[in-house]
């Protein structure tokens, strides 16, 4: 039973590190800022969550005396709450700076609607 927990935890940790590595490779390879934000911040969210779950499972020996699980749970909830907010703010800043989209982009409904005066330019009040 205990060895099973440890092996499951190690598998989770490996999957998490691999996901983080994928995020970094995406950060290097993607053509423009928007796609880099996409792959760079979101794959790393899942990677961090999986790694923390794995590490929490691997510390099964002293779950009762020492507070491992609670701290890892707080970290996971914290990352789930803050990561979309910070990456969304970054993406809006990139759009407000008018950094051009890559040549692969097919459609930009937001620019069309800004030109048609349906929405305002994203900037601060």
């Amino acid at each position: 039973m205990k060895e099973t927990l440890e092996i499951i935890g190690q598998i989770f940790l490996l999957m998490g590190s691999f996901s983080l590595l994928t995020a970094a490779i995406g950060l290097l390879r993607m053509p423009d800022v928007y796609n880099r934000v996409q792959t760079g911040t979101k794959a790393s969210t899942l990677g961090a969550i999986l790694s923390f779950i794995g590490l929490a499972l691997m510390t099964y020996e002293n779950w009762v005396e020492i507070n491992w699980v609670g701290r890892f749970a707080v970290l996971v909830v914290f990352i789930i709450l803050t990561n979309p907010v910070s990456s969304h703010v970054l993406m809006r800043a990139a759009y407000a700076m008018k950094i051009p989209l890559s040549k692969l982009t097919t459609v930009d409904k937001l620019r069309e609607d800004i030109n048609n005066k349906i929405v305002e330019e994203p900037k601060d009040e």
Binding site: Y34, N35, V37, Q38, T39, K42, A43, T45, L46, I80, N83, P84, S87, H88, M91, R92, Y95, T106, V107, K109, L110, D113, I118, V119, P122
Partner: peptide, 26 residues
């Protein structure tokens, strides 16, 4: 935003503008 591939840029009333890494329908 948290599901990779889609990303909310702007919300205006009922409309949301989403950056999609693989556009299936425009």
């Amino acid at each position: 935003t948290l599901t990779p591939g889609t990303f909310t840029i702007e919300i205006n009333d009922d409309a949301m503008y989403i950056h999609w890494i693989d556009v299936e329908s425009e």
